[in-house]
Amino acid sequence: MTETILDLMTDYGVSILFVVTFLSCLCVPIPSSLMMLAGGSFAATGDLDIITTAAAAYLGAVIGDNSGYILARTFGNRISGWLDANPKRSKLRDRAKSYLDRKGPISVFLSCWLVAPLGPYVNLVCGITRYNWLKFAVWGAMGEIFWVGIYVSLGYSFSDQITSLATMLGNVSGFIVALLVVVLLGRWLWQVSNPDPTLSHNDAS
């Protein structure tokens, strides 16, 4: 995999970096983080310009985020119809919308870099729930600064260790996502096992 990525960087330079980060933000399973590390590594050896490399990755990510949002929002009516057909799905959508109304900015921001594997799905959820586009675009753009900046700069600084670095960062990201899932699942189980006493009282009356 690493050799293939290095070959692609050699043949296509920053163009392939733009394409890869763009596609990764549209839920395409592609090693965008490793590509950015490789881009930083090539910049360290003088084969690429560091500013152009970071700019290509950043533009691809930002355009990809907004494309995912726009696609989900455009076809959101069809998806909403499917969600409304089932009370459980409809309730889940309403809860997602309520959560984004309260914590949307920080969720979009962190999904771009701290829990990057969830980022493309956050883009889709924001589009489906018709979350304010300007807020989405601004906070997403700020988050991508961290994502691109961290990976390109690490590739630049540790150009001879990108494989080990990619493995370590992948493990850290995976752990954070897994921890988040466990926390959310635990919260859901708590709510299920401890129903709202007000609702029980109203049912009884």
Rank of each mutant, 00 (worst) to 15 (best):
I5N: 04
L8H: 10
L8R: 10
T10K: 14
Y12Q: 12
V14N: 06
V14I: 15
V14L: 03
S15D: 08
I16Y: 02
L17R: 12
T21M: 08
C25I: 03
C27V: 15
P29M: 09
I30M: 08
S32K: 01
S33K: 00
L34A: 15
S41Y: 07
S41P: 01
S41G: 11
F42K: 14
I50Y: 09
I50K: 02
T52V: 10
T53A: 06
A54E: 05
A56P: 04
Y58D: 03
L59R: 06
G60D: 04
A61W: 02
A61M: 05
V62N: 04
I63V: 15
D65A: 11
S67V: 15
G68R: 12
R78D: 13
R78H: 13
S80M: 12
W82L: 15
N86Y: 00
P87Y: 11
K88G: 00
K91R: 11
D94G: 14
D94S: 14
Y99W: 14
L100I: 02
D101T: 03
S107F: 09
F109V: 07
L110S: 09
C112F: 06
W113V: 02
L114D: 05
V115L: 15
A116D: 04
P117H: 07
G119D: 00
V122Q: 02
L124I: 13
V125M: 11
C126W: 03
G127T: 08
I128Y: 06
T129A: 07
T129F: 01
T129C: 09
R130S: 04
Y131K: 06
N132D: 12
K135Q: 09
W139L: 13
G143P: 10
I145F: 13
F146W: 12
G149E: 03
V152C: 10
V152Y: 12
Y156N: 07
F158I: 10
F158N: 09
F158H: 09
S159M: 14
D160Q: 15
Q161W: 04
Q161Y: 15
T163I: 06
S164H: 12
M168W: 09
N171P: 02
N171S: 11
S173V: 10
S173E: 04
G174Y: 01
G174D: 00
F175C: 04
F175Y: 07
A178P: 04
L179G: 08
V183L: 14
L184M: 07
R187V: 05
R187H: 13
R187Y: 04
L189C: 13
W190E: 04
W190T: 12
S193R: 13
P197S: 04
L199Q: 14
L199A: 08
H201K: 15
D203W: 13
